[in-house]
């Protein structure tokens, strides 16, 4: 009772803040929170979009884990892809932002645009289909054949042992997104005086400077970048779709998101698709919590 009273008093004291948040929160709850809650409910139902959802309890989850071997394969693939794409994309974004910061401002601006521009170019993924084309005229096969590294063309996009590495490579290639932009802006915000102080305190080289000054000063941006990296790495699916088609040969690059789209958009089993989305959601939250643990160790 006392606690409630204190809470109410606190709320009254901060009423201006609530008022400031209100416009956004109205849209947020209507168009973001409500649909998610609705989807979580769908995950316990049999729902084909046309007829009203029919409650079936945990049946969707049971089927996914116990009967659907392709789903298990999708989880494995997603983890393999994410383990490479997440950290590599993250570190690459950071290193590029760090290097760009060392250059004169005008040069840095041009490079920032160059690195981010591909994220804005719509269906440019087709270039990768040319590079990794199965034909001996594909760019990669052509070069490898010409210089005698291989004697016969490699079926990059059909041989199931090459598909996953190719998807990983292309995903890393395309991973410079908003995380990179936040790093570029974040590094610029680190106070110059701190570097001077650090130099006096005996910081000798750029690497020490990076670990003890730059990184600890950028924790919010690092966290933001990580949330983006984790989300993107675990949501890989479109790249494989565009390169090798759906479904991928032998399900070699079938990911959780591919599986979700299969049920949600092709088979019209929204209940099952929602269950997959909920599982993916919890995997992402878990990865996010793990990263927060790691981040607390930076700069120590």
């Amino acid at each position: 009772m006392r606690k409630l009273k204190i809470t109410l008093r606190e709320m009254k004291r901060n009423r201006v803040l609530y008022l400031m948040m209100l416009p956004f929160l109205i849209f947020f709850f209507t168009f973001a929170v409500y649909p998610v809650l609705q989807a979580i409910y769908y995950s316990f139902t049999d729902y084909n979009i046309l007829e009203a959802p029919n409650f079936i309890g945990l049946e969707n989850y049971r089927k996914l884990f116990l009967e659907d071997t392709i789903f298990i394969k999708a989880i494995q693939n997603t983890f393999i892809i994410a383990v490479f794409v997440g950290p590599l994309g993250y570190i690459l974004s950071y290193l590029l932002a760090w290097m760009i910061n060392e250059l004169p401002h005008w040069l840095g601006t041009i490079l920032t645009v160059i690195f981010y521009a591909p994220s804005m170019a719509g269906n440019s993924i087709m270039i990768f289909a040319l590079i990794f084309s199965n034909d001996s005229t594909g760019y990669l096969n052509g070069i490898l054949l010409k210089y005698g590294f291989i004697s016969e063309r490699i079926l990059w996009l059909s041989d199931s042992s090459y598909i996953l590495p190719v998807v990983i490579l292309v995903s890393v290639w395309m991973s410079l997104g908003v995380g990179f932009l936040s790093f570029v802006a974040g590094i610029k915000g680190v106070d110059e005086a701190q570097y001077e102080a650090a130099a006096i305190d005996g910081i000798r080289n750029r690497w020490q400077e990076l670990w003890y000054v730059t990184l600890p000063n950028m924790k919010p941006q690092l966290l933001f970048g990580a949330v983006m990296s984790i989300t993107n790495a675990l949501s890989v699916g479109g790249v494989a779709d565009a390169l090798v088609g759906f479904p991928s040969p032998n399900y070699a690059s079938h990911t959780i998101v591919n599986h979700l789209n299969d049920y949600g958009l092709i088979r019209m089993e929204m209940g099952r698709a929602s269950a997959i989305a909920v599982i993916l959601f919890f995997i992402m939250i878990l990865c996010n919590l793990l990263f927060r643990k790691f981040l607390s160790k930076v700069g120590t």
Partner: peptide, 9 residues
């Protein structure tokens, strides 16, 4: 909310 797949919403 950044982590929930848009297909099902």
């Amino acid at each position: 909310s950044l982590m929930f797949n848009a297909t099902v919403t």
